[in-house]
């Protein structure tokens, strides 16, 4: 079992302002986990596959949580969600969709494709900090996360 604060969070978002904002909000929420960023769906997949290859029994390098934007270039969030849920090595990673949209069809579709949560990006920074704090508390304190590498043997 990994130490909770050493479990990295991966943010997939093409919008640099949003990445910056999420980073600051995570800091402000005092979440100690390392945060990594990718900026499109293809980059996200190749990052995950690379981390998966580099991981060992003792040292799991896969992110413990993915914050996924839906609208991204090259391969959008929906496609990448589908790919991750199809991959035996990656499918157990919790994915939180964090997007501008609150369209019903986006919400429905994300859950159908296997998202664990759907969050509309808050407008106020304070709210974003609160969301990050709650996410951190929920996923790293309340919930037991799968240890992807171990479960795959």
């Amino acid at each position: 079992m990994r130490c909770k604060t050493s479990i990295p969070i991966l943010v997939a978002d093409d919008d640099m302002d949003d990445c910056e904002m999420i980073k600051e909000a995570l800091q402000a929420s005092r979440l100690l986990n390392e945060v990594q960023f990718v900026h499109d769906g293809e980059e996200l997949l190749s990052f995950l596959h690379r981390q998966q290859k580099l991981s060992t029994q003792a040292n799991n390098l896969l992110p413990g949580l993915i914050l996924l934007d839906l609208n991204m270039p090259k391969m959008d969030g929906r496609e990448v969600l589908k790919e991750i849920r199809k991959s035996p090595e990656l499918q157990s990673i919790p994915i939180i969709v964090l997007t501008t949209s609150k369209a019903e069809e986006d919400i429905m579709r994300s859950y159908n494709l296997g998202a664990n949560s759907f969050i509309t990006k808050p407008i106020e920074f304070e709210t974003l900090v609160q969301v990050m704090r709650d996410l951190g508390r929920y996923w790293f304190e309340i919930v037991e996360l799968p240890d992807c590498k171990l479960s795959e043997g």
């Binding site: 302002d17 949003d18 997007t99 501008t100 949209s101 369209a103």
Partner: peptide
């Protein structure tokens, strides 16, 4: 409308 227009606005 759901995505591209909302994003800059939210910012």
């Amino acid at each position: 409308a759901a995505h591209d227009l909302q994003e800059p606005l939210r910012k």
